[in-house]
């Protein structure tokens, strides 16, 4: 049994591009899922009853489904239901965004709820409206509490982008496994794939630790 590790170097261009796609997916998903998560959290807390229930149902549904199922569902069912054909990349992005928005909504909701009632009362005693109290007093404080959890969600998302490989999105997992299939260099490519994820993910995990230490809430 001989191992030819040069196959990794030979395909470095493809792997680099694929890594770029992985990073792009992560960034784009968060760019959508953070604002959407805030909106859904606000709807869950402050909107009128039917909207509140719908928002809660959405969050509970997507928090209780495997992401890989959502990816398949988006790929096969979305085009049929919406009549719009999306590229695998866009479909993968949609599935990831739907999923992460739900988690973020829960994070933001918990963050908003964790601010003491007295803070809102003090703001209102000054004559602020509910919206002003939210904007000037509650949200700035909630953001601090929410940041460590968002960082953790980010790293999970980074790993979860590997799941859109099942619908042939040309991110790292898919491309690595394609090269494996073409070159028959199974051990080399799979190890290289793991190594690249590790190289990118390890520093992110350490960064999350630092953020959690720095923003630990002391009451």
């Amino acid at each position: 049994m001989t191992f030819d590790w040069s196959v990794v170097w030979q395909h470095r261009g493809e792997l680099l591009a694929a890594t770029g796609t992985t990073i792009l997916l992560t960034v784009a998903t968060m760019a959508i899922a953070v604002p959407c998560g805030i909106v859904v959290a606000a709807l869950r807390l402050y909107a009128w009853a039917p909207v509140r229930v719908t928002a809660t149902a959405y969050v509970e549904l997507f928090r209780n489904l495997p992401l890989i199922l959502v990816v398949f569902w988006a790929f096969y069912v979305l085009p049929i239901l919406s009549g719009v054909g999306l590229s695998p990349l866009a479909t993968g992005l949609a599935a990831l965004a739907l999923n992460v928005t739900a988690y973020n909504a829960e994070t933001f909701r918990a963050g908003l709820n964790s601010i003491r009632r007295g803070q809102v009362e003090a703001a209102m005693a000054l004559g602020m409206s509910r919206t002003q109290a939210l904007r000037r007093v509650v949200v700035p404080q909630a953001l601090r509490r929410v940041l460590p959890v968002l960082a953790s969600t980010w790293v999970s998302l980074f790993k979860d982008t590997s799941l859109v490989s099942v619908i042939a999105v040309t991110e790292l997992a898919y491309v690595a496994m394609q090269i494996r299939a073409q070159s028959f260099r199974v051990l080399e490519m799979l190890t290289a794939m793991a190594a690249i994820y590790w190289l990118l993910g390890y520093p992110q995990a350490k960064l999350v630790d630092w953020i959690q230490r720095r923003y630990a809430v002391t009451e």
Partner: peptide
């Protein structure tokens, strides 16, 4: 003025 002060910590 509140018993728990309720200053805005940020």
């Amino acid at each position: 003025v509140f018993q728990s002060f309720e200053l805005f910590p940020h």
